[in-house]
Computed example of a mutant assay.
Amino acid sequence: MNEAREGPRRLAVFGAYSDHDLYQRNRTLVQILDAFSEATVYIRPQARATGTGFSSNLSLFKRMRGMFSDALSLWTQRALLRDCDTVFVPYPAYFDLLVLWVAGYTSGKLVVADAFLELNSTVVEDRKLIPPRSLRAWLLNAFQNFTLSRADIVLIDTPEQASLLCQHLKGSPMKVADVPVGIDESLWTEVPFPALSERVQLLFWGTFIPLHGVEHIVAAARILESRNVPADLLLIGDGQMASEVAEELKQAPVAHLRWKRELVDTQALRAAVTQAHVVLGVFGDSNKAGSVIPYKVHQGLAAGRPVITRSGPATERIADERRGVILCPPSDPLALASAIETTVTRLRNGWSPTPRTVYEQSLGRSVLMRKLAASLGVDVPDLEEVGSQS
């Protein structure tokens, strides 16, 4: 085993990244890497133009214009990289890596880039925004492979996603390391479990992408209604599949289902979690859905709520029904309804799950620190010091 070394003497955090609440991973990774280094310089566009990365609602033309403006601003600050021995490029790293490469700073320094989401499985397979085996899909893969190959270490969120990315980057010399999603633990603290009344409160929130499988949640709610299970479901969110879900509910409403159709901020989500007894995860049947542990699963467990989500290679590593991580088959409303019914019965019979312990052991900040330290080959800094900076 190689001996650990000291962290970066001078770290540069480089790119047009967002540390908005939707991108808590960026915020968390930057904080931890900053704790590893002796000094950190932040090189970001002086007037950020592209909103919140690939989730921006800007038109394609305005988004491309914004990316060009961001790239130009980064280019004018490239001299700040000269004295840095390590460069971290947060998600989405692709265009920023191109700027770094053109500027000549991808050699002679340790470049760490965060891929977070493997592009082909996200854009082509799960969201179906580009046809598979098309020229656009080929170009997307080529773009991902070329840009990420400019880095020495590429981070991604699970071992399954790391394995998939390694297949795409076959032949590239960089190291791919899996590091859990990373949430802001100053926001997602454990909150008291609400008292149980006549009905158990279920909560789902998200951007209604195919991976979430919201249609299966709605179908499960119908089954629960037919069985007279004492549970209420609150949906929060909007997005790609929302219109289809809305049409289905218009044709056949579900009595104990409410939907707040908007994307809300973290404080509103936290308020909703405070009132909920159970958080629902994701239930899509794509390979991508089975290879990730989404933000909402991390956040629900961190808040101290039992979580029901689909089974898959990623979630099976943290499955623990006794402590409050309950799995069911993907794309199976009947199995989901049965899992919810069993959980409702257990709660009404006095079950006291401890999901926060699962989060801390498998997904929490200390896990991220150890994973990052191992990928960099450095010593782990003091946990209390990093926590005080968050």
Rank of each mutant, 00 (worst) to 15 (best):
G300D: 00
V30N: 13
L58E: 02
F88L: 01
S37N: 09
V179D: 13
T122A: 02
C328L: 12
R356T: 09
Y42V: 15
A71N: 14
V30D: 09
T40V: 07
Q389A: 13
R65T: 00
E190Y: 00
P180C: 15
R346V: 06
D184F: 07
T52D: 12
L269N: 06
P132F: 10
D152T: 07
R222Y: 04
A335R: 02
Q251H: 08
G387K: 06
A339S: 15
P329C: 04
V264Q: 13
I217K: 10
L257H: 14
I293F: 07
V229M: 01
S73E: 15
L135M: 12
R65D: 00
Q251Y: 08
D232S: 02
P192N: 10
V358A: 04
Q251S: 13
N2E: 15
A268F: 13
R44K: 14
G284K: 06
L129T: 01
R348I: 01
G182C: 14
L224E: 10
Q299M: 03
V13T: 03
T86G: 10
R25G: 10
Q251C: 02
T207L: 00
W188H: 08
T158A: 12
L235M: 10
W188R: 05
T158Q: 05
L165T: 05
G15Q: 00
V367L: 11
A314C: 05
V102N: 05
L301F: 05
V278H: 07
P355T: 10
G237P: 02
V102Y: 05
P353E: 15
G324K: 00
S37T: 11
Q251D: 05
R310N: 08
K128L: 05
L368E: 07
G104S: 15
A39P: 06
S55F: 09
V380R: 04
V87A: 12
A268C: 06
Q167A: 09
R82G: 09
V325S: 03
A276S: 12
I209E: 02
G213A: 08
L139T: 11
L203T: 10
A219K: 11
S55T: 11
T345W: 01
R48N: 03
R370L: 11
S311Y: 00
W101S: 14
A221H: 04
R348Y: 01
I236L: 09
W351T: 09
P90C: 10
L368G: 02
I130Y: 13
Q144G: 06
A319P: 09
D178R: 00
G312C: 03
I340R: 09
V13A: 03
D265W: 08
L148C: 03
D382H: 14
S69H: 01
T345L: 07
A4D: 03
V99M: 14
C166R: 13
D238Y: 04
A93G: 07
S149I: 01
K296R: 07
L22H: 02
L110K: 15
L119I: 13
L235G: 04
K109C: 11
G350H: 05
S311Q: 13
G281V: 01
L58H: 08
L60D: 06
A162P: 06
D285T: 10
E384D: 12
K170E: 10
A303M: 07
Y23K: 00
Y42I: 14
T158P: 06
N2G: 08
Q167H: 05
E6I: 08
A35P: 02
G281W: 01
L202I: 12
N228H: 14
L263R: 15
Y94T: 11
S134E: 06
G300Y: 00
K260Q: 12
N57Y: 08
V123S: 04
